[in-house]
Amino acid sequence: MLSRPSFVSDEAITREVAAHWLPEITGYARWFAAPHTGTEDDHTVLEGLYEALAADAE
């Protein structure tokens, strides 16, 4: 039987991801799942996604 990685059982990290990161990424996914034509708003949202991912990587 495979053991679960320790980070999976860390409830504090799981709650933090669920409360902060997941809703933000879900918002970006909804935006980009909808039809868009490369407007200024599309570029602004994409830049926001890049910034969010860079901040979480630090």
Rank of each mutant, 00 (worst) to 15 (best):
Y50A: 11
I13P: 01
L2H: 05
F7L: 08
T39N: 11
F7D: 05
A52D: 04
L46E: 02
V17K: 02
S9T: 10
Y28P: 06
E58V: 07
E40P: 03
D10M: 05
E11I: 11
A29W: 02
L46G: 02
A33N: 06
P23K: 10
W21N: 05
V45D: 03
I13V: 10
P5G: 07
I25W: 04
R30P: 02
S3R: 14
I25Y: 07
H43Q: 15
A54N: 02
F32Y: 08
T37C: 13
D56K: 11
D56C: 09
S9C: 08
L49F: 10
A29V: 00
D56S: 11
A57C: 06
E58I: 02
W21F: 15
D41V: 03
E11P: 00
L2K: 05
G38I: 00
S6Y: 01
D41F: 04
E47D: 07
L2W: 07
S3D: 10
T37Y: 07
G38C: 00
I25K: 00
P23G: 10
I25G: 01
E16I: 06
E47S: 07
G38V: 00
E58Q: 11
A52Q: 04
R30E: 12
A29Y: 04
W21Y: 14
A19L: 04
E24I: 10
L22V: 14
E16C: 08
A18T: 15
W21M: 13
A57W: 13
Y50M: 09
T14H: 13
S3E: 13
A52G: 12
V17N: 03
A33Q: 04
V8E: 09
W21P: 01
D41E: 13
R30Y: 13
G38F: 00
P23A: 12
H36S: 12
S6T: 03
P23E: 09
I25V: 07
T39H: 12
L53E: 08
E58T: 05
W31S: 01
L53Y: 07
E24Q: 13
T14S: 14
A54F: 05
A18H: 07
A55T: 08
L22Q: 12
E47V: 03
A33L: 06
F7W: 15
A54G: 01
S6V: 03
A57T: 10
M1Q: 07
T14V: 15
T44I: 08
R15F: 02
T39D: 14
V17L: 15
S6C: 01
D41N: 10
T26N: 12
S3F: 12
P5E: 09
A18I: 13
E47A: 14
A18L: 14
D42W: 04
